[in-house]
Design a protein around this nucleic acid. Structure first.
Length: 552
RNA sequence: GCGCCCAUAGCUCAGCUGGAUAGAGCAACGGACUUCUAAUCCGUAGGUCGAAGGUUCGAAUCCUUCUGGGCGUGCCA
């Protein structure tokens, strides 16, 4: 058993023994004291109980410690203190930390995993960009965040899937067709303007050229709307293909690419309309059909069917979300761009009206990205081809740096992405700092082997006693805790922070302790410690989808 | 007007759900390579946590108001 688990279990039993309710998981959370003299692990449970129990926190702490002293294994804990207003501080036994190195290595790739989520099925939908143009920078951030969070949820025992919704129908697709058709005719020498609200990006000129090179003037004789439809389908396919290629290049594998057409062809939105009609959730006004979203806290009611008789995007989207529930997902989590936050109340309202509890649908807004080059913001305008594309950025800075930077910030925070920094191969760049720690460990291993020292499968860890070594183990043991916290708070940046801190602790250890020496027992123990550090850093980088280089 | 996000060191940000003396990284300055990679480490300096109230044993963290910034507020998607 790992020391944190042991402490947690013991606190739980101590709580029960003293007549407290121990079912609240948050009561059992542990923290690391900032000052070394406050021990290795600390619990605030006594202070948190003070209000409920209406007793002095130090008194509660004393009662708990009395129980704890009877339960704790001296192989794990050498001392328990009560300090300040009622902190309970635990001092870990050296032996316990030494053995923990072996535990980490034993769990290897599974170190960090747990069954906290209990197989609960969650659908993560993210990016879902319109297939009318290349993916932009915000999509790149959403992709990184969504991918990493899905990985984290799966690590702690949820059954989480990645999903991408493709809007391959509706008004914007017609506009795409009209736009590419205009570009195509222009290519043939019959200049036509791209519709005002169409897509003006250069990528459609390129596509028109491609079509012309392949098929010549084959489509010129078609009627305008027929040509727009035909070329529109080609453009759609081309764009979706590009989106898929971008994601693959970004090391992101979706479980599902879901076409809007599937909803429309199955007439799934009709079921939503029927349900709303039956439950009096909809009404007609000014030739349109409205949904009573204001009854669920939205500012006003929303249109389901326009006065022209067309289903709105909103209606189709409701049916799509219902479809996700129908496929067995218990909770839906969407990541949307900042321009969509006004859309949350109406979708939440619709799903509640369909009988889904409010908490079964959650949206996280991923804030915008500002690209910086030479310290200045790059203007990203959606107009007339000034889009800075996701692929351009990835090609310039690399997948590793891009993923790290996009995840290294709270998602509710706008992100400044410094292109120069991301490319820099120096200590200023956190990605290299972390990767370097991994490469450095690999190098120690190589050096050992070159000098005839075999990398041990196991070792007597008792020579490992100094503060740098023990500090490293304590840091490594914190990894599963970090993973759980990242999931609970939907905060993937905790993983990058953790990795950076771990790299720091390792570099300090490296600086103070020579690993491969004449002392065979010490060498073996430190090699084991290095292996454990390598494993944890690799696991963390793996969560982020970032490579763990053997040398740099 | 209303709604969402935000305000912490010169810059970029953490701050583990209310805890102990507010921390990193960059930038600045001063040190450490005959050593398993100096892509590293050590040290110095830098703060009225936007402002004012409130809640309590205790607030950067929770509540209210204000100031200042970003975004949104279609029978678009």
């Amino acid at each position: 058993m790992k020391p944190l688990e042991h402490i947690r279990n013991s606190i739980k039993k101590a709580l029960e023994e003293n007549g407290f309710d121990a079912s609240d998981k948050t009561l059992l959370s542990l923290e690391k004291p900032k000052q070394a003299e406050h021990g290795d692990i600390s619990s605030t449970v006594a202070m948190n109980l003070a209000k409920i129990a209406k007793k002095a926190p130090r008194q509660i702490a004393q009662d708990l410690v009395n129980s704890l002293n009877k339960k704790l294994d001296p192989d794990y804990i050498t001392k328990i203190d009560i300090a300040g207003p009622g902190f309970i501080n635990f001092y870990l036994a050296e032996k316990c930390l030494q053995q923990s190195v072996l535990t980490i290595l034993n769990e290897a790739r599974d170190f960090g995993k747990s069954n906290w989520g209990d197989g609960y099925k969650i659908n993560f939908e993210f990016v879902s960009a319109n297939p009318t143009g290349p993916l932009n920078i915000v999509s790149a951030r959403a992709a990184a965040v969504g991918d990493v969070l899905t990985t984290l949820f799966n690590m702690v025992g949820y059954e989480a899937k990645r999903e991408y919704y493709i809007n391959d129908a509706g008004r914007q697709v017609r506009l795409l067709g009209a736009s590419v058709s205009a570009r195509y005719m222009t290519e043939l020498g019959n200049e036509q303007p791209v519709p005002e609200d169409g897509y003006h990006g250069e990528y459609l000129i390129d596509l028109a050229k491609e079509i012309f090179a392949k098929d010549g003037d084959k489509y010129a004789s078609l009627a305008d709307d027929e040509r727009a439809a035909t070329l529109g389908r080609m453009a759609l396919e081309y764009m979706i293909g590009r989106h898929k290629a971008s994601m693959k290049n970004y090391r992101l594998e979706y479980d599902e690419w879901f076409n809007e057409t599937r909803i429309r062809e199955a007439n799934a939105h009709q079921k939503v309309l029927d349900h709303f009609a039956k439950t009096d959730m909809s009404y007609e006004k000014e030739d349109a059909l409205w949904f009573r979203s204001s009854q669920f806290g939205d500012e006003k009611d929303r249109v389901l069917i326009t006065s022209q008789g067309e289903p709105t995007y909103f209606l189709i989207d409701i049916a799509y979300h219902q479809n996700k529930y129908d496929r067995g997902f218990e909770t839906l989590i969407d990541f949307w761009g900042p321009d969509h936050h006004g859309y949350i109340p109406r979708m939440s309202a619709a799903l509640q009206a369909l009988g889904h509890p409010k908490e079964k649908f959650d949206v996280s807004i991923i804030q915008q990205v500002n690209l910086l080059r030479s310290g200045k913001a790059i203007k990203m305008s959606k107009r007339a081809g000034e889009i800075v594309e996701m692929d351009e950025l990835i090609n310039e800075v690399g997948v590793d740096a891009a993923r790290y930077f996009f995840v290294d910030r709270r998602i509710s925070q706008p992100l400044d992405f410094d292109i120069d920094l991301a490319k820099k191969q120096s200590d200023e760049n956190p990605v290299f700092y972390v990767q370097y720690a991994h490469a450095r460990i690999c190098n120690i291993m190589r050096h050992a082997q070159e000098n005839g020292v075999e990398i041990p499968e196991t070792a007597d860890m008792s020579p490992m006693t100094n503060t740098f070594e023990l500090a490293l183990v304590i840091k490594l043991l914190d990894f599963p805790e970090m993973v759980t916290k990242a999931v609970e708070n939907m905060e993937p940046h905790r993983i990058t922070n953790y990795l950076h801190e771990t790299a720091t602790v390792f570099h300090k250890f490296y600086h103070e302790n020579r690993v491969v020496t004449e002392d065979k027992a010490m060498t073996a123990a430190r090699l084991m410690l290095c292996k454990a550090a390598k494993q944890v850093i690799a696991n963390g980088l793996d969560v982020l989808g970032i490579s763990a280089p053997e040398n740099m």
